[in-house]
Design a protein around this nucleic acid. Structure first.
Lengths: 140, 140
DNA sequence: GCCTCATTATTCGTATACAAACGAAAATGG
DNA sequence: CCATTTTCGTTTGTATACGAATAATGAGGC
């Protein structure tokens, strides 16, 4: 990247990011199976943090486009994990919250999510992980 | 991730990777416009490195699923950037190579790709970039 | 030669991912 | 108050992303 030499795909950060994300997705799949996708997981866990919020807000809080969060919420509702009600104060909005089923899953999801993160960072030692995450956050 | 404290989505490497990838995609879009997507770019640049190869091989060399590379190659052929011929030695295979149009684009794509990588890593100084890329590669 | 296994590419189905357009509703400013 | 702008959520279209199934072809062993 810095020095000279010919342009190589393998040296581009975007390409390497994709490889790491794919490995993460594979680790995620091995632990979650087909119950939830990473995107559905993120939406559920964030909704647990927020308690209740609008669909657009959940999209913003999980870095998802408005069309994307619509689909993810539809699927989570279809699985009975999320509930939707109208906002009495704003007819444009719908309010989302976890269902009883969704709430009952959260502790297990936290444990699984923690394990996936640990799996993903396994090639690094503790100090390297801290350095890596610190640098990665600055690129977000 | 390391210390105790409650589970937080913002601390999970998978989530942060997604944020960084989105920022990278946005930087890519701002430089490439709608001419090429990051995936099409990767396929073109890798095909330039390889000269000629099979579709499956190109997929493997760009970390793309067999169904995915089929679609990407179709679109690149549709744009007239890639050519496909039958493999005289193996009826199952088709061989891919850049068209004249594709070849003429490569130097410019290298320059643009380099700029996108630089843009993406801009928040880090030179030493931090080296450290980050080194650690990132170990997670791939 | 024949059978079994592996490889190549296609197809299908499902899930993102996101830009753009749209309609309804709320907010803002004059 | 009224017009304009902004926000919310839906819809449409295009592009991945990938698992699984399929058919055709090639490799390898007996």
């Amino acid at each position: 990247m810095t020095g000279g030499g010919p342009y190589r795909l393998d040296d581009q950060v975007g390409y390497i990011l994709r490889l790491v994300s794919q490995r993460h997705a594979s680790l995620f799949l091995s632990r979650l199976g087909s119950d939830l996708t990473p995107t559905q997981f993120a939406a559920l866990v964030r909704l647990a943090e927020l308690g209740q919020c609008s669909q657009n807000e959940l999209g913003r809080q999980t870095a998802m486009d408005v069309a994307t969060i619509k689909g993810v919420v539809d699927r989570l509702r279809g699985k009975g994990m999320v509930e939707q009600t109208a906002d009495p104060g704003d007819k444009r909005r719908s309010l989302l919250s976890l269902s009883e089923k969704g709430r009952s899953m959260i502790a297990g999801l936290h444990a699984t999510g923690h394990a996936v993160t640990t799996d993903t960072l396994e090639p690094l030692d503790a100090r390297e992980r801290d350095v890596f995450l610190s640098l990665l956050r600055r690129l977000a």
